[in-house]
Write a protein that binds this DNA or RNA. Structure first.
Lengths: 245, 245
DNA sequence: GCAAAAGTGTTGTCCTTACACCCATGC
DNA sequence: GCATGGGTGTAAGGACAACACTTTTGC
């Protein structure tokens, strides 16, 4: 189907009409909240800040901000992440919108939750502010607003995604041992895995590059260090078909 | 951690402060768009309306509306669905928020896409309006706004979900033949499946109830009709662990 | 009797699971 | 030499993929 060309004056009029229409729409405040995951001491952690709202004094809150005018949602999430951590080029994905009318005591605020994964030990990571902390997810029982619900949703999302996509490597140093990788999976999924089968599984994928380096400063036999072959993974992504529920 | 009780006057003050804060937040229009899937003539279809915006005259648009004050997002999606189809108690799930500044020609409008599955032949389905149509998803190449992108995201979402959860039954009559079920999977996934393996797969799940009824009015050997055992499924949901990418 | 789809089983391959012992290193 | 975790192989069972013929019904 081809449309006839619309002359410029008419197009202007139509856009003017569209703008007038949008003016009549009700408006709500819109924020982004980032659930920033890290992995440290074999624990899954999130980057949190003490709530700046007096009403939630002492409680932890997610890192968030409004979405600016003319800013893409993804860009807003990146901006928040960069402002708070100093790191760019980080894994980030939208998870879910939360918009319960009562979720903010000051009136309705819609928030879109983004999930981010980064390596806590990364050199570029740069957390100035005093009251920003890495908090173990298992120790979180209370948070400001509905942020515990948001964290739970993101954790569930992560548990699922990490089994289907090689996200977990974003939480590890560039070079890591198989033990670290397994600890990561066990921490996120909350289960224990058979070591031999775990190693066989990753060996059979042929997506780990042997760096010919070994762990340093460990008080036992050092393990080999690997890198994940993102390039190869991208080329051979599996087409996933299999009914299973 | 226990907090000391806060006296009522102080609490009022804090809430007042919170409200004052939220007043300062920038606001944007917020809508919900519903991608309503149906299955008819062995094709996956979506319920669409001709755009009411002059600028997109003749193009199809998703069914959407603003979110009302004090309305849960999920409730808003249900409201839109009910208004347009007459059906309640329908599968509905949030898929993704779309908020590109340029997605609406009249200015920034955030929309949250919801995905719904219903049975086109269901008696309660009640579509009055003339310009609302079931459109085959494979015939969609152009839509108003960014709605084609939204539809694509929902289709991808559905392809994934239908393999992991028994959603597909929402698109079929209560009683259905295995052939219909297979056609549904093939249409949604865009692949062909081995008939014997497909039947074996569902037989081994033990989640189909044999109704002892047969297809009527078919010009060949009639097939058995089954119902899905939602109750049993809910009881025995599999705990899904398996790294695979 | 013919067209059209229903219904059914077997085999080989692959993946997953369960499980136990020796090895390298630091102390 | 001992503690700690690294590294490896095998066998059994289960799931999946490939594949062809007979049966029932409408016309």
């Amino acid at each position: 189907m081809k449309n006839l060309p619309i002359d410029a004056a008419n197009a202007d009029q139509l856009i003017h009409d569209a703008k007038a229409l949008v003016q009549t729409y009700p408006k709500v405040p819109l924020t982004i909240d980032c659930v920033i995951f890290g992995f440290e001491e074999n624990k899954l952690k999130i980057l949190l800040i003490k709530s700046d709202l007096e009403l939630y004094k002492g409680k932890f809150s997610l890192l968030g901000d409004f979405v600016h005018d003319n800013e893409e949602l993804d860009d807003a999430a990146y901006r928040i992440l960069k402002q708070r951590t100093g790191m760019g080029n980080v894994f980030l994905d939208q998870v879910k919108a939360f918009g319960s009318p009562a979720r903010h005591p000051g009136g309705r605020v819609i928030t879109i939750a983004y999930c981010s994964l980064l390596n806590i030990q990364h050199h570029a990571l740069n957390i100035h502010e005093n009251d920003i902390k890495w908090v173990s997810i298992s120790s979180l029982h209370e948070m400001a607003f509905d942020h515990l619900e948001i964290v739970t949703a993101c954790h569930t999302w992560l548990q699922k995604r990490i089994q289907e996509h090689p996200l977990g490597f974003n939480l590890l140093p560039e070079k890591f041992s198989l033990r670290e990788l397994q600890n990561l999976y066990e921490a996120i999924l909350g289960i224990t895995l058979d070591r031999r089968n775990f190693r066989k599984k990753f060996a059979s994928m042929n997506l780990l590059i042997d760096t010919n380096e070994m762990e340093q400063d460990v008080s036992h036999r050092p393990g080999k260090l690997y890198q994940f072959n993102f390039e190869k993974y991208e080329k051979n992504k599996r087409k996933w078909v299999g009914i299973d529920f």
